[in-house]
Amino acid sequence: MTSGPYNYSYIFKYIIIGDMGVGKSCLLHQFTDKKFMADCPHTIGVEFGTRIIEVAGQKIKLQIWDTAGQERFRAVTRSYYRGAAGALMVYDITRRSTYNHLSSWLTDTRNLTNPSTVIFLIGNKSDLDGQRDVTYEEAKQFADENGLMFVEASAKTGQNVEEAFLETAKKIYQSIQDGRLDLNAAESGVQHKPASPGRPLAAQPPARDNCAC
């Protein structure tokens, strides 16, 4: 996918959350690089990856934030969540405990993002079906009850990874079209590029000469 650096109309901020070891960074890496990192180190800090996608003919830059899945509440937690247009909430289908913690992740997300944030539930490691510890039906039901979108995916094979990111973007875009998402709100997580210069928030385009130096 090649597109010029300025050829996008929106920037969407995503965050990826979930327990340690569920494959957050691998999902990100699979999505941005289409590669599977077999020995992915534990994420320590906070970083983001980007990729430009196309939704309804519009180029959208996804800025996907990734951090450690530790339970500790960190100074950066609030900042991390703030202004996310999409939240990918990940569990590991082979480890029930990661599924059991979803409700607390969900609570954090609801508390620290805005109401229009699209939350997408991903049951990762679907390639390890033999070691499955959480059924699809069960997770699907959880997702439905909480108004989440849901797929099972595999960062290893790439199955459904693209879909999860794209579906989230579509939903966000839909919200913009519907007017449910106020682009001018500081924490919408979406930047309309023409209006973006010098925006202080995280979702700055890495563009041009608004560089701080």
Binding site: G45, F48, Y80
Partner: peptide
């Protein structure tokens, strides 16, 4: 975390992975 926070709120760009320099961006 404190440092990170400052970065996130002022120049999040440098947290991009892989890191993208201004000129090569």
């Amino acid at each position: 975390d404190e440092l990170l926070l400052r970065v996130m709120e002022t120049t999040p760009r440098i947290l991009q992975n892989p890191y993208v320099r201004n000129n090569s961006m």
